[in-house]
Design a protein around this nucleic acid. Structure first.
Lengths: 225, 225
DNA sequence: TCAAAAGTGTTAGATTTACACCCATGA
DNA sequence: TCATGGGTGTAAATCTAACACTTTTGA
């Protein structure tokens, strides 16, 4: 095997995952205390090094699977972070990904096994390295997307009420929206289907449960990319 | 010196620059024929490996300076590209950046020295590795930005006519816009200042030259980030 | 004198925002 | 019976989009 790029130095590359969840009306991030030196016991995102035989997307998916036991998680790249001294141990260039999961899909056993906690995005502790910056950028990216693409559904159960959907939207964007206007907008989206089912847990009267129809979305001419 | 992360493999990291210019009413990209193996003589973006002592942003700036002789170029990260086999030589993870320059600021001597050419974005040849994908993503990012932030000015001379500005906007977004509506929008932006100067090169009658006032922009409450 | 680009307002339609009350139910 | 969240419509304001003619001047 020929070596083409001799003389150039190689560097450790990692992925760090910002895992968003929606719980108790708040947008939360899954973080834990770092279990290795340097920075042991500091709050940190969950991450891992990119192996020889995997793409960076694969690495992010692997890390997410290790952590959650879930495959096919909605996941997008945030960007690369490459300051020379960003990691106090050794030089590491890290590529951040954000992922959206439904907190109910995520077993507490895995959570405990990894010593992870859901922390409200407003009220994150100071974290290891540049992880706070990563979260901030991830949130911005996600905010930019949520109004254009139906990604909310990844954070909710398959069936959800309009109030839940609204609370989620408010939590992500950080601002209240008008109930009637919000529901009007949703009604125009044919891929959000009302079911016959009623959720009685959130109110005495009960609220209709809705569902996201992916097929209808993909066929909706108003929402082609 | 302690080594913290033993056992993890390191990888070559490069930056690749998508250099946008606006010329003859078209959005163009600066590309050249690759001068090393593998892929010698294939069309390619200009790039370079990230050195030990420089951040990835520094690396991108260095590459841009080598190439153009210009410092403080407007530059934004596009993202990391990390498929295992993306580079036929060896594994290389690459971070793409796009940059906006005014073609007149860019001396033809440097262009010739590096054997580079401005190529219209519609009509790029097949390029080395995943460089076409990089360009496509860069364009998308830039399109998303141009309506929200005044980045056009980086592609134009200090003084420009409204027609030039409109042509640029059209070239970036890939669609025609109405002249009167466009000028109305511009008039509402107080940081785009009309000067007393007239450009006579573009028309017999002459067109007023405008200028971007960065200070006014930063102080404009409607455009604070 | 004419070709070529500069410059300029109005109107209809669409979209967005603001806003308040009745309903159904379990406790 | 009352407290709680679910559900609904309208009108004003704003924004967007469509549209055509006059001006200036160098060739």
């Amino acid at each position: 095997m020929t070596t083409y790029y001799e003389g150039y130095s190689k560097v450790l590359v990692s992925v760090d995952c910002i895992i968003f969840g929606f719980d108790e009306g708040e947008l939360k991030v899954l973080i834990g205390k770092r279990k290795m030196d340097p920075g042991r016991d500091q709050w940190s995102l969950y991450g891992g090094f990119v192996a020889d035989n995997e793409s960076i997307d694969d690495a992010a998916n692997r890390v997410l699977y290790q952590l959650t036991g879930i495959r096919n998680i909605y996941m997008r790249q945030v960007g690369a972070f490459g300051n020379v001294d960003r990691d106090p141990g050794e030089r590491v260039i890290s590529i951040a990904y954000y992922a959206l999961i439904n907190v109910n899909d995520y077993g507490s056993s895995l959570q405990e096994e990894h010593g992870l906690q859901w922390m409200p995005i407003n009220g994150l502790p100071q974290m290891y390295s540049d992880h706070n910056t990563m979260v901030a950028k991830a949130l911005k990216k996600m905010q930019g997307k949520i109004s254009h693409e139906p990604i909310s559904f990844n954070l909710l159960p398959k069936l959800f009420t309009l109030t839940q959907l609204q609370r989620l939207y408010e939590a992500v964007c950080g601002e209240k929206v008008d109930k009637r206007n919000f529901r009007k907008r949703i009604k125009d989206m044919d891929f959000i289907e009302k079911t016959e089912l009623i959720d009685k847990t959130g109110s005495k009267r009960g609220a209709s449960l809705y569902r996201f129809n992916k097929k209808a979305y993909n066929e909706d001419p108003n929402f082609k990319l």
